[in-house]
């Protein structure tokens, strides 16, 4: 194909979280838990039901950007699935996207499948393209690791 079609970053992540589906589903809509789990989240407040405003300091060591963003949850089918859309912008550029999250029951755990489309723009797209996908993957991994800890701590 020409011109070269470069896909926006598509991320497929699957993670096992040690709690039942309803708890995981609820956690994904709990601002307090989200603030603790989202990597680099400095503030997160609900502005309306299922709508949030957040400040994130994210990136990788040495290359962090502060992003002001909004997030919204839609298509809620408790405890099976939801869609999270997000948009953030900061000095190094902007990040936009949406994630379809599907929760499936497993043994003593819930498998959280996440398919995200992420668009990155501005400076980070211009100079950091080779690291964007890996960074997004890492941030998603960090989020689920933290969520797992959160769930096991409160079990």
């Amino acid at each position: 194909m020409w011109p070269p079609r470069v896909r926006k970053v598509k991320l497929t992540v699957s993670h096992s979280v040690p709690a039942d589906r309803q708890r995981v589903f609820d956690a994904l809509g709990d601002p307090a838990i989200l603030r603790r789990c989202i990597p680099g989240c400095e503030s997160l407040t609900a502005t309306a039901p299922d709508a949030y405003e957040a400040t994130l300091k994210i990136g990788v060591p040495g290359i962090k950007g502060v992003y002001a963003g909004i997030a919204a949850i839609s298509d809620k089918h408790p405890p099976e699935s939801l869609t999270l859309s997000f948009e953030g912008k900061g000095g190094p550029g902007f990040v936009r996207g949406s994630a379809a999250i599907v929760l499936s029951p497993g043994e003593a755990a819930t498998r959280v499948g996440c398919e995200a489309d992420v668009q990155v723009g501005g400076l980070i797209a211009a100079v950091g393209s080779r690291l964007i996908e890996a960074t997004a993957r890492k941030l998603a991994g960090d989020f689920f690791n933290q969520l797992s800890k959160e769930m096991s701590a409160t079990t």
Binding site: V6, R7, K8, V120, G122, A125, A126, S129
Partner: peptide, 11 residues
């Protein structure tokens, strides 16, 4: 290279 959103990837 521009991606499909028009982001320049060769900056």
């Amino acid at each position: 290279i521009y991606d499909e959103n028009g982001q320049l990837l060769t900056g």
